[in-house]
Write a protein that binds this DNA or RNA. Structure first.
Lengths: 203, 203
DNA sequence: GTTCATATGTTAACACTGTTAACTTACAAT
DNA sequence: ATTGTAAGTTAACAGTGTTAACATATGAAC
């Protein structure tokens, strides 16, 4: 955090650019994010971004990865809290997923826009796997050392339902006029229906 | 279908532009669709599109609406076929949903990219409601004349699951290396788990 | 059939985008 | 102190959506 008075070298440009993407995406949506806009917001020349990111898509990939880890953090916290108080951990994790999508829609979109990012990037893939890991907790692992990209039908059902719900809320025509609280309640009702399917084989 | 030899007036530019979007999106993805590219493919000047569409977003809105109706057509056909042969109609409709996403990923994406279209457009909204209608068939309607945007928990569970599955296949890290057939099989396994939830209250 | 309003196309320009090449500055190791 | 390198700048490029001003073909009224 050392500050030069010359201001020629910014010093934290890579991270500052991510913050700029954050702010612009939050205010105007992920489609409005522009390299030149980010640079201008930081007070730096348009071309400077290319010293730190190969292209715009790389920047958005890192941003998406960052957003995935933020979501995973939030899911982890919810899980731990639920485990302490003896609540349904899977339910808590799912609700955290939906809550993130509702409160940070631009971030949630950025995570899954396949054509805007390099979805084969190792860090990105690792972040998606970390996220999926919290949804897999609470399920019996039948096979050890399995491919982390391979999901049991129960796990995939859980992820599909919560992901679909989040997507329909964010980009779809479902409950558009409703408040965040109302939609969270609706999500709870929907997810509760799944408990009979899971309670049979829960660990 | 009358053809002028002067070639000054194209005649079917509005529809031809939609076809161009179709072809470019299929080949290179929805992000690669460009007004100038569409115009060039048709052999028309870049500015001509604006006589038929207010802006690019309007064109993509009509394209998304068209794609939604194609999906709804496919779902309707699957439903009728299943009803004739006595199969599970809801299952058939869900499988048609996933199949469309897998075979026409660019179209499926275009339907739900909120920032690329005018999602408040009446025709677009009508198409989404038509689509949702096929998922609602087979469920008991408890309240008559209800808002078509309002879904029962069961209906929303069905839509969320199938939509999430489709999205995770198309944009997510799930089963990326698997073939379409394998993924359809996986989808069936996931969706079958929902039958106990629905059979209680099916009509 | 000629006239003419209108729908539908063209051309040329605008500001803005991502990206690159050539250049400049500051820092850090010798 | 010198100097190599990391990190910034400027100026240009082609490509984008969009608009204004202009051109042409169509079809209805006379």
């Amino acid at each position: 955090m050392k500050k030069s008075n010359s201001h020629y070298h910014h010093g934290h440009l890579a991270e500052s650019l991510l913050d700029a993407v954050d702010e612009i995406a939050t205010q105007f949506g992920i489609e409005a994010v522009t390299l030149r806009g980010c640079a201008k917001r930081i007070g730096v020349s348009p071309a400077s971004a290319f010293r730190h990111y190969a292209d715009k898509r790389s920047l958005l990939t890192v941003f998406a990865t960052r957003a995935l880890n933020q979501l995973a953090d939030s899911m982890e916290a919810s899980m731990l809290k639920a485990q302490e108080s003896g609540e349904d951990a899977l339910q808590a994790v799912c609700m955290a997923y939906v809550h993130f999508a509702l409160t940070k829609p631009a971030f949630f979109r950025a995570m899954w826009r396949e054509e805007m990012i390099y979805s084969g990037d190792p860090d990105y893939l690792a972040a998606t796997q970390r996220l999926a890991g919290y949804l897999q907790e609470g399920f019996l692992k039948t096979i050890a050392d399995e491919d982390p990209c391979d999901f049991s039908p129960q796990e995939l059902l859980a992820w599909s339902t919560v992901h679909g719900l989040a997507c329909l809320f964010v980009d779809g025509p479902v409950a558009q006029e409703k408040s965040t609280e109302e939609r969270m309640g609706l999500a709870k009702t929907v997810l509760t229906q799944l408990t009979p399917v899971f309670t049979q084989q829960r660990s």
